[in-house]
Amino acid sequence: MKLATVSDRARNGLDYFVVQATKNSLVPAGTACEVTPDDDAAVPKAPDVVMFSVSSYLFRVVLLLQFDHDLATRAYVAGLAGTPADEMQGERFLDAMNERGNLFCGAFNRDLVPFFPHIGMSTPCVLKRNSVEHVVAVKPSYHRRFKCELSPGVVMYFTLALCADVDFDFPFVPRAEEETDTAGELEMF
């Protein structure tokens, strides 16, 4: 079976949506961060992954957010959640990461809606690290890994896998920077 072709324009759009989703869901307003492609690196050793999917009739995007449970990451997430760092442990930490992942996936979904109006997103699913190594088993038409240093010592990784039933393209044009902040918007499902 031949994989669907993904245009360069669509690849650029998907990459851009990952960067914007990161800025809108995992970074405090006014804070800079750099999200860079990390395809050639070995799969990071971060222990847990939160998986989401965005699907339509024509495609499915699997998004994996990979993170550590170390003190720096828990303190960072606690700051985003407005919670004391010492309370950000165990199940509470995973709940906070699921919520941040929901925000990430929602921002990504919103960026795709103008091009594909009939799409929906999944609820979070926590997986173990080695699941990232097996993303290629779903035979994605496009697969990319990203690295983001959110603050000194806090690094998260994102994996995007697009599984398309037909050749995939959309008229992506990057928006001006002031148009990209959608944090705080209310969205009804």
Rank of each mutant, 00 (worst) to 15 (best):
R129Y: 10
D165Q: 14
Y76H: 10
D8K: 05
P47Y: 08
T182A: 04
K147A: 14
R175I: 00
M1C: 03
V62T: 14
M1S: 07
L3R: 06
V18F: 06
S53A: 15
Y57F: 12
M156T: 12
V27L: 11
S25Q: 01
L186S: 06
F115D: 01
P124D: 03
M156W: 07
V77W: 01
V132K: 14
H134R: 14
A32K: 13
A164F: 06
R100W: 00
F59S: 04
A41L: 08
L103M: 09
F52R: 02
M88Q: 11
C148T: 15
F108R: 03
V154H: 14
L65I: 15
N12E: 06
G120W: 14
R144A: 06
L71R: 10
T36W: 05
T83L: 11
F146Y: 15
R92G: 01
A81V: 10
V43F: 10
D8W: 00
A183T: 08
Q20L: 02
Y57L: 14
K147I: 12
A164C: 07
V6L: 01
N109R: 07
E91P: 00
F17V: 02
T182H: 06
A81R: 12
Q20S: 04
Q89M: 04
A107Y: 02
Y16A: 05
V173C: 04
T159F: 11
D181F: 02
M88F: 08
A21C: 03
N102S: 05
A183Q: 09
V136D: 13
A32V: 07
V166R: 13
A96M: 08
F158S: 13
G120Q: 14
R144P: 03
C105V: 02
R74V: 01
A41G: 08
Y157R: 11
E177A: 13
H143V: 05
N98V: 00
M121N: 09
F93S: 06
D40W: 07
D38P: 03
P37H: 04
V35T: 15
Q20G: 02
E178Q: 02
P84V: 08
P152V: 07
D15I: 00
G79Q: 13
K147R: 15
V136I: 13
P37V: 09
L14H: 02
P28N: 12
E179T: 05
A4Q: 06
E133D: 14
L103C: 05
A81M: 15
K23N: 07
A32R: 12
L58M: 13
R100A: 09
A183E: 08
P124G: 04
C105E: 01
A137N: 14
L94N: 03
T22W: 04
S122E: 07
C148H: 09
L80S: 11
C105G: 01
T123K: 10
A42T: 11
L63K: 08
L160W: 11
A29E: 12
D39V: 09
R144S: 09
F170S: 06
E187H: 04
F67N: 10
P114V: 06
A21D: 03
D70R: 03
E34N: 10
D68E: 13
N12I: 00
V173D: 05
L65D: 12
L150S: 14
R9I: 00
F104S: 06
P140L: 09
Q20C: 01
F189M: 01
G120T: 12
E179W: 03
V77N: 01
V50M: 12
A75F: 06
V138A: 14
R175F: 01
V50G: 07
A183D: 07
P152C: 11
V54N: 03
V35H: 11
A81Y: 10
